[in-house]
Simulated scan of single mutants.
Amino acid sequence: MDGCILTPDGWIDGKLHFDTGTGRIGRIEGTPASPATPFAAAGRPRIVPGFIDLHVHGGGGADCMEGSAALRAMARLHAQHGTTSLLATTMTAPRAVLDVTLAELGRVCREAPGDGARVLGIHLEGPYINPARLGAQPDAAAVPVRDEVLHYLSLAPVRVVTLAPEIQGDLALIALLAERGIRVQLGHTVASYEQAVGALEHGAAGFTHLYNAMSPLLHRAPGAVGAALAHARFSEVIPDLLHVHPGAIRAALRAIPRLYCVTDGTAACGMPDGDYKLGSQTVNKCLGAVRLADGTLAGSTLTMDQALRNLVAIGLSLADASARVSRYPAEYLGLGERGNLVAGAFADIVILDADLAVAATYVEGRRVPA
C-alpha cells in the first residue's frame, strides 16, 4: 500500500509492504515527508499504526461480561473503527460470575483474531476497588485474597488490574502482580497522595481513566490525581471530551510523558440511543453519553478513531495523537511488535482519509470487513 506513512522516524511518502502469510511488515520505502504533507497531499491516504485500546467493555450491542460471543462481536465493531488489538475489560462482580466470565474470555484471547481486533488479554477492573468510588461499577467490591487472585490469573491472560491501593491487602497484591509482569493501575480510589505514591513504589505502573473515580487534586490534599501528575510515566485517559475537560487533558499531557487514550467503551458503541448492558447493570445511551439511571457516566460510546480526531481537535499533531492511541499503550504493555510501523512488526495498520476517518483496517495483515 502507498501513501503518507507514519513511522517512528517521522512521515514517509512511499510504500509499505507486508506479508499476509506471516501478518508482518516486510519493508517501508519512500522519502521523508514534511509534517504538513499528510494534510496537504491531495488524495494521498494517511497510513498509521493500528489503535490499541487497553480499557474497553463492549461495542456493537455486546458486553464482554456476556461471554465469548459478545467479546468477538465487540472486537469486530472496534476493528471497524481502527482498533487492531484490545484488552477485554471486566466489571466488578462476585467471584462466581468472574469465574465463568474469565474462563470464557480466556478462550477468545487464545484464538486468532478472525474478522475483529486481536484480544491481547484481560483488564480486570476490580473487584479490589473502593466502594466509595464505584463510579459505574456494581457494588461488589472485595478485599483481595492471594489464592483468589492467583485463581483468576489461571483462568485467563490478565494483563492489567485496576485496584484501590488504600484497601487492606492491596499493597501486597500490587507487588504480587508486578512480579508477574502484570500492570497494576490505581483507580476507583479515595487514596491520599501519600498512599498513591506508596503504591507506585510497590510496583503500580499507571492510573485508570485519569481524573474519573479517584481522589481529586486539591492544593493541600493532592490525592491520586496529584500523584499521577507528579509521578506517573503512564496513565490512561478517556478523551471523549465528556469525561474530562480538554483543559484537564492538556494539563495531563504536560505532566505525564506517556499519557495514552482508552475508550472505556460499552455495548452502546456504534449503536443507536437506547438501553444496554454494562456488566450486571443497565445503562442508557443518549446524546452521545452513557449513564446509569441516576445520571452517573457509565463508560462511553467512544471509539479509538474518534479519540484520535478529538486529540487533533484540541491541538495535537496527528503524529502525537497517533502515539497516544497506538505506540504508548504498546510500550505500556511491553508489546515491541505492535504500535509502530516498522519492518518485522505485526501489520496492524489503519488507513485514514483526509478527514481522519477510517478508510481501512488491517489486523496482522488481514483487512477487516467494513
Rank of each mutant, 00 (worst) to 15 (best):
L297V: 02
Y328D: 05
G315W: 06
D305K: 07
C64T: 10
G30P: 06
P246E: 02
M91I: 03
G106M: 02
L124S: 01
E194S: 12
G274V: 04
I167D: 06
G334K: 06
P157W: 09
P94S: 11
G206E: 04
V48K: 06
V184D: 09
G14N: 10
V143D: 01
D63V: 07
I12M: 13
A136R: 07
A313R: 08
V342W: 00
I351W: 12
R76P: 02
P165A: 01
S68H: 08
G23P: 11
D240F: 03
A41K: 07
D9M: 11
N212V: 04
Q306N: 01
I25V: 13
A213Y: 02
A191L: 01
V262L: 08
T263A: 08
E148M: 13
A73E: 11
A252Q: 04
A321F: 06
M214S: 12
H231S: 14
L163N: 00
L217M: 14
S326G: 09
V149G: 14
L302C: 10
L308S: 02
I52L: 15
R76W: 09
I174E: 04
N130R: 01
R133M: 15
A142G: 00
A103M: 13
G339H: 06
Y128D: 02
D53P: 03
S85L: 12
H219P: 10
N130S: 15
E337A: 15
T92N: 07
M214V: 13
D275V: 15
R46N: 03
K15F: 10
Y128F: 15
H243D: 06
G116E: 08
H17D: 13
